[in-house]
Amino acid sequence: MSVILDLLALICLLGGLFFLFVGTLGLLRLPDVYNRLHATTKCDTLGVGLVLLSLILQSSLAVGVRLALLIIFILATNPTAAHVIARAAFKSGIRPLTGRRNDRD
């Protein structure tokens, strides 16, 4: 039983690290503020969630409840911050790129 928990925690930890990496790679590669927000919001939220899940699987109940509350907290604040950033970009007149990108280059 303990071995299964350890293995599950390890998978969650590596998956979370992978998604954090992919989100930041998207931040470096994508061409526009809006497209960068796509990569960072989704991948960051899931990455933090998976890393905290692996810590929950390894710790006691009282700590696990607090970490779960922290996950809910991040799940609520992260998309809201992304929405506010996108709205500020839209209102300050940054035009989003449109159209199919591969045709151009």
């Binding site: 931040l27 503020v33 960068r36 927000l37 960072t40 960051d44 990455g47 890393v51 950033i85 500020a88």
Partner: peptide
């Protein structure tokens, strides 16, 4: 705004 997005990622990493 790009810098704000990058700052958000860095703070998430600090929490981790």
């Amino acid at each position: 705004l790009d810098r704000v997005v990058a700052m958000n990622i860095i703070t998430t990493n600090v929490v981790i």
